[in-house]
Simulated assay, not measured.
Amino acid sequence: MPDTKTPSLHAMSVALTEILELLGEDRIARLTLLRGGTVTIEPVHLSEGAALARDLGLSETFIQRLAVPTVADWCGAVSGLECHVRALTGSDE
């Protein structure tokens, strides 16, 4: 029996289309879409990650201090998906 709490692949693709239209494909290097409603976005330039996160309305961030260079994972809900955006820390602060 399908899990009705998680979005369908069709609903996820519709939400992903909305995200791409908002951000512009040229700003995105990689997208990872996971069944269950999670999308991870890596910008072409990590220094622009915080700007992409702001454009999506994301406000929560997790600093990955062991990564070199230090990166942030901005997260929140966008169009019904759990969304994560990678960014360099301190680049837009």
Rank of each mutant, 00 (worst) to 15 (best):
M1W: 07
M1F: 11
M1E: 13
P2T: 10
P2I: 10
P2Y: 05
D3T: 06
D3L: 14
T4W: 13
T4L: 14
T4P: 13
K5G: 11
P7M: 11
P7N: 10
S8N: 06
L9Q: 03
H10C: 02
H10W: 01
A11W: 00
A11K: 01
M12P: 00
S13D: 06
S13H: 05
V14G: 05
V14Y: 11
A15D: 03
L16Q: 11
L16I: 04
T17C: 04
E18K: 09
I19G: 03
I19P: 05
L20F: 09
L20E: 11
L20C: 06
E21A: 06
E21K: 06
L22W: 05
D26A: 09
D26I: 09
R27C: 05
I28L: 10
A29V: 01
R30P: 02
L31H: 04
T32D: 10
L33C: 04
L34V: 09
L34Y: 07
R35M: 03
G36K: 03
G37Q: 02
G37M: 02
G37N: 06
T38S: 07
V39G: 04
E42N: 14
E42H: 14
E42Q: 15
E42D: 12
P43Y: 08
V44K: 13
V44F: 08
H45G: 07
L46I: 07
S47Y: 07
S47G: 12
S47T: 09
S47I: 12
S47L: 12
A51K: 05
L52K: 01
L52T: 06
L52M: 09
A53M: 02
A53I: 01
R54C: 08
R54V: 11
R54G: 06
R54E: 08
G57L: 03
G57A: 08
T61Q: 12
F62P: 02
I63P: 06
Q64I: 14
L66H: 15
L66N: 15
L66A: 14
A67V: 15
A67T: 14
V68H: 14
P69S: 12
P69L: 13
T70K: 15
T70A: 14
V71W: 14
A72N: 08
D73E: 15
W74L: 11
G76P: 09
A77V: 13
A77T: 15
V78E: 06
S79T: 12
G80E: 07
G80C: 10
G80T: 08
L81V: 12
L81P: 00
E82W: 00
C83M: 08
H84G: 06
H84L: 05
V85P: 01
R86D: 07
R86I: 04
R86Y: 10
A87Y: 02
T89M: 03
G90D: 00
G90V: 01
S91P: 00
S91N: 01
